[in-house]
Amino acid sequence: MVAIQVDSLTKRYGEHVAVDGISFQVEQGEAFGILGPNGAGKTTTLEMIEGLRKPDSGQVHVLGRPVWPDPRSVQSLIGVQLQSTTLFDRLTSRELLELFACFYNRSDGSERAQLVLEQVGLVGKADAYADDMSGGQQQRLAIALALVHDPDVVFLDEPTTGLDPQARRNLWDVIRAIHADAGKTVVLTTHYLEEAETLCDRVAIMDESRVIALDTPAGLIASLGAEVRISYTEGGEEQVAYAHDAQGAVLETLEAARQRGAQIEGLSVRGPSLEDVFLKLTGREFRE
């Protein structure tokens, strides 16, 4: 069954088209990633689906219901972690979760609070104020708040941005559990290629307001038509080549260099990643 149906969604800010007629579907129970550089239109897309920003044209359905013109009926079914939310100060994690459960008219607020605190691994900080917690803990709390009313679909907008690698990996486990154990549909945005690759069943790559590719991570990489990526530096410039056969390609590269009389450095051979997919599709490195 389809969890989210997006058809020709467009949003303009004045002259600037932030989201340009994009369409995609997310299946129920799927972990769906939107990957793209800064300003690609990820947040705008997400917030149109969540009912926070009104699209200029196009349609969004969540669990079969149209989001617009009245997002209220959809909003009670979804859980959202916004890209940036400073939460109230001087309320503890537990109080905040119970308050949000109450906003959703749930009478089992304290049980739900305890449950999601366990889910995101924040039980030890249940009685701490949000402003006294670390960045990673605050992010966990924001995710817990998205889960407290037991929604069917969860939106996470850059859940790991700004975290150190260790904290990021810990949060990945949390997100995997939400998806795999709790069986929720998860839609997340990220600028980390590795994150999209490891967490998502399918990934939409967004660039300059459009979806330029959409497939499973493996499918996207396979679309390169290459098994290996060879890179080296010659005269201070990085060279990248793709090939099917690692051994032959390396020998070929070295031989060609010897014949040119060139000095190559930092030769590396590895399997291609989503980074290469982005490079191939846009002609640009993922990070400018």
């Binding site: 926070l52 400073t86 959703y104």
Partner: peptide, 13 residues
Amino acid sequence: KQGVLRRLKLTPM
């Protein structure tokens, strides 16, 4: 400014 009101807008309250 901090987006608290926006976050609350997502709840049925």
